[in-house]
Simulated assay, not measured.
Amino acid sequence: ITIDTTAPVTTAAAVTDTGASYTFDTWARTSYINVTLTCNDGSGSGCSTIQYCTDTVNTCTPSTAYSAPVQISTEGTSYIRYKSTDAVSNTETTASSTIKKDTTAPTGSHTSSGYYGNATINGTLEIIFRETLVTLGKNGYLRFPIKNLWHRCTLISVGNGSVTFSVESTPKQVTVKEGEYALVDVTDDGNADVNITVVKIYSSGATVRFSPVEQPVATTPVTSPIVTPTVPPVTPPAQNASVVKNETTPAPSGRKLPLVWAYVILVAILGIIAFFIYSVMSRKKTEQ
């Protein structure tokens, strides 16, 4: 007597339109995906039927008898649900596999340059990169300036819950999950220059926030060069020029002696006194 109370197990495998192996729940650029279902009942009574169904919400009930690979050409995310029954009517619990197919180019897939403004830093005019929110499709890119040099970040692939970017000028790759971010040093100076945050991932791209990273404050004092100001020559006003209010102007002639004449008179008086003293001293010597 052989007793079989174990349900069989169904496995699913898939290939793309080129015959390449397809991994379920990953995005593929293909016109269709063929799914093969296989029943295995082990040492039981043997597989009898495989039933399946397909939909886009993963709720359908398998009722179609499987006989050949199932071709799925639905754009976007779809599901194949399946179950097997053996010869003594042991029925497997319904299982499912996720198919993600994308052949539609995204709209508004990239922008040619980020938002930026100008600022003068340490006497040098620099192009300042500001926060930018953009939706990128595959191979879409954003150009942004760091230290007066343009760099580019390209979305090169969309995976299962993550996006991979190629960041230039020095090529490097970063993979970022939805809701997470990566700090990237694009100038290779040891400091992160740009923050790449993945806001939302779609079947063919992602909404990404790019923002500059503030650099740490330098701990080494910076010595500024001493600059000698250049004093422009003063041009004397014309004789008929109007006098600017609150400026000091020479006193009108006759009201006040100029200071140089006061010195001349003082020197003259002192000279007369000295001559008088000299004359008196000479006379006394003569009388003796």
Rank of each mutant, 00 (worst) to 15 (best):
T2Y: 06
I3A: 09
A7M: 02
T10K: 00
A12F: 03
A13S: 14
A13R: 06
A13P: 01
A14D: 06
D17H: 09
T18K: 15
Y22R: 03
T23K: 14
T23C: 00
D25C: 11
W27G: 02
R29Y: 06
T30Q: 08
S31E: 12
L37M: 10
T38W: 01
N40G: 05
T49P: 00
T54Y: 09
T56V: 13
T56I: 15
N58I: 09
T64I: 15
V70P: 01
E75Q: 12
T77D: 11
Y79R: 09
Y79D: 11
I80Y: 06
Y82G: 00
S84D: 01
S84G: 11
T85Y: 00
S89R: 03
N90F: 05
T91D: 04
T93E: 13
S96I: 05
I99L: 15
K100S: 10
T104F: 08
P106E: 04
T107A: 15
H110R: 05
T111R: 01
T111C: 09
T111M: 06
T111A: 09
S112P: 09
G117L: 09
G117K: 11
N118T: 13
A119L: 10
A119S: 14
T120H: 02
I121L: 14
T124Y: 14
T124G: 04
L125M: 11
I128R: 09
R130C: 05
T132N: 14
L133E: 15
G137H: 05
K138E: 13
K138F: 11
R143P: 00
F144Q: 01
P145F: 01
P145D: 01
N148K: 14
R152W: 07
V158I: 14
G159R: 03
G161H: 05
V167F: 01
S169Q: 13
T170K: 03
P171N: 06
K177I: 01
E180D: 10
Y181M: 09
Y181I: 02
Y181L: 11
D185I: 02
D188F: 08
D189G: 12
D189S: 07
G190E: 05
V194I: 15
V194T: 09
N195I: 01
N195F: 07
V199N: 13
A206S: 07
T207W: 01
V208M: 06
P216I: 12
T220V: 14
P225D: 09
P225M: 04
P225Y: 03
V227H: 12
P229L: 13
P229M: 09
V234D: 01
P236E: 04
A238R: 02
V243K: 09
V244G: 00
N246S: 13
E247T: 15
E247H: 06
T249P: 00
A251K: 11
S253E: 14
G254S: 08
G254W: 08
P258T: 05
L259F: 07
V260Q: 04
A262F: 10
V267A: 11
I269H: 03
A274R: 14
F275D: 05
F275A: 15
I277H: 03
M281E: 11
R283Q: 12
K284C: 00
E287S: 12
